[in-house]
Amino acid sequence: MTASRKSMGLHLGVLVVLAALFFILPPYHTGNMARIMVLAIYAMGYNFLFGYTGLLSLGHALFFAAGMYGFGMTVTQLGLPVPVAFAFGILAAAVVSLVIGLLALRTSGVAFMIVTLMFAQAGYLTILYFGEYTRGDEGFVIKQAQRTVAGIDLTSEAGRYGAAFILFAICFLLLARLVQSPFGRTLIAIRENEERTRMLGYDATRLKLQAIVVSGAVSGMGGATYALLFGYVGATFATVQYSIFPLLWVLLGGAGTTVGPLIGVLFMFYLIDISSSYTDAYMLIAGVVLVLLTMFAPQGLAGELRKRVMPWLP
């Protein structure tokens, strides 16, 4: 079996398992899985920039929030139909990431981290500043009635899981394809050696900008999906913490692997959820596990898999 076939099999396999889980798991865990898939969309968006292009951003919460507010505010305040508002959310995130990209790409390395961090911080404060419209930190609720698409109630367990699954699957397959396309391979080349890629005649800055926009749009889609499925929009999602989460998920799951983000989110979610049912000190456990993981699985979970048993893992 060729690598690309194996990879195709793997991706379809993951999706089949995710679809089947809905029928197997008890309701609490299907609820969690829906949430995990939504957050995994965000993580995949992040991974595209960090794992494949090699740009470490600390400002992705801004893109997540752009999608979230872009969708949430147009659907509640302008009364746009859900699909239009959803598309608007993604567009908003793409535009924001384009602007940030144009500025931030003048820098690289740690300076890139800081510039993205600061723009995101300014974005967070802007949400608070326009509290009259955004309701600041408190945020706002999207009513159940406004969360229906084509007659399907997305607030029902099946509707939510289905929507999360479909949107996750689209991003999952598209991104898996994209990283194996010439565009994706050039990005990997930039990650490995930018100078050489430039010398081969590629416009690295332009490609990186495109990567930021793709990454930002997917992250924004994660934000819009969260608002759509869980009915809440708030400034907390624009804080630094929510910029660090995807980095953590991706590093844990395995940067530069297509399944890594999902694994990372899944791992982190259940790490907190399970340990918190045994002790109040669950962050302590989470901390110890992170330390151990980085000591013994330096490539992240999927990265270790790739290194040890599945070298073809995309």
Partner: peptide, 16 residues
């Protein structure tokens, strides 16, 4: 990269 994850872990431990 590993230092980031490791020190986030330390952060959680100290904070908790």
């Amino acid at each position: 990269d590993r230092t980031i994850v490791g020190t986030i872990g330390v952060l959680y431990i100290i904070q908790q």
